[in-house]
Write a protein that binds this DNA or RNA. Structure first.
Length: 456
RNA sequence: GGAUAGGUGGCAGAGAGGUCAUGCGUGGGACUGCAGAUCCCAUUUACUUGGGUUCAAAUCCCAACCUAUCCUCCA
């Protein structure tokens, strides 16, 4: 399996630390506001690859943090006259709700930052003891200049980082590029007790505290949006490695590209973001998943209505053939497919840096082959094709869920409808078709044979 | 200014020295009572610019231009 590793910027053969086990950590959101398509992209992508890795036999521990304390949460709480805890709780639940709808259900454990204060303090203390961190009047900071590999992930050298640093400088903070590990409480802010007085953790420290708790010093894969490479992931590496003295925090770093609107990154400040909950009013979760994985994960996606509409057509197409295959019950038909060849080919594509776009291209070609030969497919072949589609769906999750349907009733309605058609009572036959369609049952007349399938 | 990723037909997007990917859109056709779904044909000399290497270059080299992202919080 090949993974493009941000660390080193090259394709590498994947080798797990412990045989057949993979520990993966992906940066989760700050639970402070509604979630947008950018969040969806990253989470759907990692959902797909974790499901794929599991399908390939790996035991995967997928860990994600939830930032439930941070400046923005505090500000938001003030604006809305609520407590930061209330804001965090609300958006945390909203996040889980949306992820569930989007079928992002591969995460083994969501770790909330505020539940790991003890571990955070322990890490900061070790950094201070080793001389990597120092206390000031308003917090504890990491001394970036002490960690020589700072900048290695984002391929910048330390001197340039120091030159370009735009970080906030205050009185006794040593350098602008130093980042906060602990922020001392200001009046009215939430706090936890620490050796440095009341306060709260900085942003970067929660992730290493959480990953150390579950995975130890090192783990296999770290993921996140590409906007987190610097400084967030750089900071994580500096923190953990300064404590562990190891060569790595994570062996492989995978970063997802941004979702753009009008060629600009979707972001709060530009007010150009599309909320997940809004897009779900017009498009199904399956269509959104498809739209977001139908591209190379590390390039940016241009969001547009056209993208969504095209995705819907493709998803419909895949679902239609899937449902039509299910209705095949004849033994006639000479067309055959090579199950193993297809599965191997699809696996190879995924194992080449999770090339979901190419996978979808091949999947649509497979659908095309099935359509071309549809009249010539026997029950056995149909079952093989369905098995292939089910396999792909086990990690793509783009097939509409099938409802519980009383097939006998539909069959008899179709029988009646065909009698009406034979006698040219088209108004009535069309009415039956229309009302079935309203109930999500689609009918197709192919000569003397009528097939039906359900669609959400 | 530095780092990263790019600039391919109406649009989206593969390809990485020589056989015009593919999808969408558009036009036409087949099938159908109509519809739907599906299929077939057409839309064939696209690769930012300027140099160079080569028998041959989107593809390699050099230069330039342009775009996005990061360098402050961000998935």
């Amino acid at each position: 399996m090949i993974i493009h590793n941000t660390l080193g910027q090259r394709d590498e053969v994947f080798k797990e630390i412990n045989k057949n086990r993979i520990n993966i950590f992906v940066c989760g959101p700050t639970v402070q506001d509604d979630f947008h398509i950018g969040h969806a992209r990253t989470n759907i992508f990692f959902d797909v690859i974790v499901k794929f890795l599991r399908a390939r036999g790996y035991s995967v521990f997928y860990l994600q943090n939830i930032t439930d304390i941070d400046d923005k949460i505090i500000r938001r709480a003030k604006d809305e006259n609520k407590s930061p805890g209330e804001i965090a709780e609300y958006y945390y639940n909203e996040y889980l709700r949306l992820m569930n709808i989007l079928r992002v259900n591969s995460v083994t454990y969501y770790a909330r930052a505020t539940l790991y204060i003890k571990e955070i303090i322990s890490q900061i203390r070790r950094m201070i003891n080793k001389g990597y961190a120092y206390e000031t009047s308003d917090g504890v900071y990491f001394n970036v200049r002490k960690f020589k590999d700072y900048g290695k992930l984002s391929n910048q050298n330390l001197n340039e980082i120091i030159e370009n640093a735009r970080g906030v400088i205050n009185e006794d903070k040593k350098h602008p590029e130093d980042f906060a590990l602990w922020k001392k409480m200001k009046p009215g802010e939430p706090y936890w007790e620490s050796p440095w007085g009341k306060g709260r953790p900085g942003w970067h420290i929660e992730d290493t505290a959480i990953t150390e708790t579950f995975f130890g010093y090192e783990y296999d894969i770290h993921g996140g949006g590409s906007d987190l490479i610097f400084p967030h992931h750089e900071a994580e590496i500096a923190q953990m490695r300064s404590i562990s003295n190891r060569k790595y925090l994570a062996r492989y770093w995978i970063h997802t590209g941004m979702v753009n609107v009008n060629k600009e990154k979707m972001s709060k400040s530009l007010k150009n973001y599309i909320k997940i909950k809004d897009i779900l009013k017009d498009y199904s979760p399956e269509v959104l998943r498809f739209a977001l994985i139908n591209s190379n994960y590390n390039t940016s996606i241009e969001y547009s209505l056209e993208l969504m509409n095209q995705s819907r057509e493709s998803v419909d197409k895949i679902n239609t053939i899937y449902n039509k295959l299910k209705s095949i019950n004849s033994d006639n038909g000479s067309f055959d497919i090579n199950y193993d060849a297809y599965i191997n080919s699809f696996n190879n594509i995924m194992e080449n840096n999770f090339d979901t776009r190419r996978l979808i291209t091949e999947l649509l070609e497979f659908v095309g082959v099935l359509n071309k030969n549809y009249e010539n497919i026997s029950y056995n072949t149909a079952q093989k094709a369905l098995k292939i589609l089910d396999y792909l769906n086990s990690f793509l999750d783009i097939l509409y869920g099938s409802k519980k349907i009383n097939t006998d009733i539909i069959d008899s309605l179709i029988l009646i409808r065909n009698e009406l058609r034979k006698n040219k009572f088209y108004d009535l036959s069309d009415l039956i078709r229309k009302s079935l369609q309203d109930a999500g049952i689609y009918i197709e007349d192919n000569g003397d044979k009528t097939i039906w399938y359900a669609k959400d």
